[in-house]
Design a protein around this nucleic acid. Sequence first.
DNA 1: TAGATTGTTAATCGATTAACAATC
DNA 2: TAGATTGTTAATCGATTAACAATC
Lengths: 212, 212
Amino acid sequence: MDKKISLAVIKRLPRYYRYLGDLLDNGITRISSKDLSVRMNVTASQIRQDLNNFGCFGQQGYGYSVEFLYTEIKKILGLDKTYNLIIIGAGNIGQALANYVNFQKRGFNFIGIFDVNPRLIGLNIRGLEIMDIDKLEKFLSVNSIDIAVLTLPKNNAVKVCQTIIECGVKGIWNFSHVDLKTPDDVIVENVHLTDSLMTLSYKLSSGDFSDF
Amino acid sequence: MDKKISLAVIKRLPRYYRYLGDLLDNGITRISSKDLSVRMNVTASQIRQDLNNFGCFGQQGYGYSVEFLYTEIKKILGLDKTYNLIIIGAGNIGQALANYVNFQKRGFNFIGIFDVNPRLIGLNIRGLEIMDIDKLEKFLSVNSIDIAVLTLPKNNAVKVCQTIIECGVKGIWNFSHVDLKTPDDVIVENVHLTDSLMTLSYKLSSGDFSDF
DNA sequence: TAGATTGTTAATCGATTAACAATC
DNA sequence: TAGATTGTTAATCGATTAACAATC
């Protein structure tokens, strides 16, 4: 990309993508920023500003072609490619993610799942056999992995993170409750479920529900 | 609370709480905003500004008492109370959350889990029997529920959301991939895993990893 | 007392919204 | 052509950072 896109914009893209998908499903072929803004409960100005970070996708007097815009955002999000993923930590969350079919549909393919627990090793999760984490380095040397999903306790997460970075993994989807330190070219996306739940309990107990 | 606290501040509180917990575990009794800022990789100014939204917890020339600050943030986050939760949708994610013990440790108690699938109804998840979703309204009429966790497909989510709001539930932890419309006094906290993964694929494929 | 560090005001920076000329 | 709606610049708003007097 040319100029720096702010994180706020990036985080809104999946939501645009979802709404455009819904419009497509409903057979709507064109949409103005105004109409979309009403549906999404944001300003039309913000939509146009956001999109214009990436190109001129609309047409004056007409609006946007839903299908075209959908395809463009898909490309922007990198969803025109496929990704190889491994899950490290085959506990509750790790197994749930492995079982969730929608990720595969979008091009995120789980090709390996690892754990330290001997009672889990060998178990079969949707066609993937849980492997001993000792085999991780070997596996990474013969498979090209785009994203490692870290669903393990935080102490182990830090250690494993080191290993996978050395093996060249550039994307980390981190579910463990710790901040991972990584080089600049390694991207970490955090899902801190506990933090999310705490945010909810804050809002519930602060009694200030003006406009969350 | 007196004045309006910005969402940006609220979202940072759980992270402060986590770092203070770590400090406590390491036997550190006092910390300055400067020291903490280095550990957390934020500015000292931001830490002081954030905390002063809620009170004057520090002491000039000394810094902050770790234990006191930890306890205060705990209260601010509403973690000095306990919450009754139900899980609606006993699929992969729903079961994973029910099985995850750390939530209970923090005062979030799962006291019911529901599904529509007859093959799941009756199954036992950590002592909770999966109930028929037909029994939901009855259950809500005799139990006080603070938070409903929605881990079901989006079409069902919208319908169920309506029901639980009518039954007086004020907190929703929404894992389904849809924006729920709710009255002002009902708080929704979203966990959109697919969006999170798309953000990661954006960053990976944009090639612009300046400072995410 | 002198040094350290807060709480808070002021300055800066960035993100959102408004406005409008360009143009389909 | 007239109406609609974009892309983009300018104005506003809010959040972050810097500075410093107060004070432990």
